[in-house]
C-alpha cells in the first residue's frame, strides 16, 4: 500500500469524550476579555471550539450591547456556564443552580477561588462544592490547582473532568509545573483539561504533549493583538500537540546521537 493510501485509511483522531458526550474539538474557549462581541464571534469561529464558557452577572438595563448567548447560538456552540468570582462553596453551589435555571443545562465549570491576587482555587471549598453539585446531578468540571492529590479528591467526588491550572489565570505564564501535570494525567481516569495560564500556542501544544485531553483558553486569545489569528493558532497548536502525543516522541538524551551511519564513511582526512 502506498504511503498516501495508508494515510487515508488511518483511523481518525480519537474523539474527545467528556460528560457523556463526544466532541471533535479539544480546545474549549473562554469568552472574557474580548474587545467586542463581533471580535469574540470571529475568534470563536476561528478556534473551531465546540464548548464555550460564560459567567452569570447582574442584569444591567443600561447596557444593551448584546449578549454572548446570541453569539453562542449563532455559531451553534455548547454553552458551559461557570461560577467565576465565587469565593465559597455556598456561593458557587447557588451560582450553579442559577445557571441551570438560566440556561437549562446541568453542566457547570466550577470555580471557587481563594483570593483575587492569585485567583488560585480554594481547595477545601472547591471539594465541598463539587460533592454537593455532583449529588444534585450536575456535570461538574472543576478548575483546580496543579495538585495531584486535589485532582484525585475531585475525581473521587464524581467530577466529569479535572481542570488544573498551568499558571495563574490571565498570567500567560504557561505551564509552571509540568511534573505535577504529568502526575495528574498519569493518575486521572477522567479527562484532564488544562484550564489557565496559557500564553501562546506553544503552551497549548505542550499541555497536549504532556497528555492533557483538552485545553481551555481565554485571555491568550481574547487579549492577543489579533484574537482571530491567535484563535486559529491555538486550534492548530492543540491539534499538533495531540498528534505529537499520539505519535510518541523520542526520549530526551543528554548527548547527541548521530542520525547518519558511521559505516561507509570515506577516508578524506
Amino acid at each position: 500500500m502506498s504511503v498516501r493510501a495508508e494515510l487515508a485509511t488511518r483511523a481518525p483522531d480519537e474523539p474527545f469524550p467528556l460528560g457523556g458526550r463526544v466532541w471533535r474539538s479539544r480546545l474549549i474557549m473562554g469568552t472574557g476579555g474580548f474587545r467586542s462581541l463581533a471580535e469574540m464571534e470571529a475568534a470563536l469561529a476561528a478556534s473551531g471550539a465546540e464548548i464555550v464558557t460564560v459567567a452569570l452577572r447582574r442584569v444591567d438595563p443600561a447596557a444593551r450591547d448584546g449578549s454572548p448567548l446570541e453569539v453562542v447560538d449563532r455559531l451553534g456552540l455548547f454553552l458551559l456556564p461557570n461560577t467565576a468570582g465565587c469565593y465559597t462553596a455556598r456561593e458557587a453551589v447557588r451560582t450553579a443552580r442559577l445557571a441551570r435555571e438560566a440556561f437549562g443545562t446541568s453542566w457547570i465549570k466550577l470555580e471557587v477561588i481563594g483570593d483575587d491576587r492569585t485567583l488560585y482555587p480554594e481547595p477545601v471549598e472547591l471539594v465541598q462544592a463539587a460533592e454537593t453539585l455532583v449529588g444534585e446531578g450536575f456535570v461538574v468540571l472543576p478548575y483546580t490547582n496543579d495538585d495531584p492529590i486535589l485532582a484525585r479528591r475531585l475525581q473521587a467526588a464524581g467530577c466529569a473532568a479535572v481542570m488544573p491550572l498551568g499558571s495563574p489565570i490571565g498570567s500567560g505564564a504557561g505551564i509552571n509545573n509540568a511534573y505535577n501535570l504529568r502526575v495528574i494525567v498519569e493518575e486521572a481516569e477522567v479527562p484532564v483539561i488544562l484550564d489557565a495560564g496559557i500564553g501562546t500556542a506553544s503552551d497549548a501544544a505542550l499541555a497536549m504533549e504532556l497528555g492533557c485531553d483538552a485545553v481551555l483558553v481565554a485571555s491568550a486569545v481574547s487579549r492577543a493583538e489579533d484574537p482571530v489569528a491567535m484563535a486559529e493558532a491555538m486550534r492548530k497548536a492543540v491539534e499538533a500537540g495531540y498528534a505529537a502525543r499520539r505519535a510518541g516522541r523520542i526520549p530526551r538524551r543528554l548527548h547527541a546521537r548521530e542520525s547518519t551511519p558511521g559505516a561507509g564513511r570515506p577516508q578524506l582526512a
Binding site: G30, T31, G32, G33, F34, L37, M40, T53, V54, A55, L56, R57, R58, V59, S67, P68, L69, L79, P81, N82, T83, A84, R94, R97, L98, E101, A102, F103, K109, E111, A218
Partner: peptide, 27 residues
C-alpha cells in the same frame, strides 16, 4: 433560586433581596 414558572406567582415582600442575573462574557 426562583424557578421561572414561579416568577408570576411570587409576590415580593418588604426587605427581601432579589438578584436578577444573565450571561456575560467571562470565565
Amino acid at each position: 433560586v426562583v424557578p421561572r414558572e414561579l416568577w408570576a406567582q411570587t409576590v415580593l415582600a418588604e426587605g427581601q433581596e432579589l438578584e436578577v442575573l444573565h450571561a456575560v462574557a467571562g470565565g
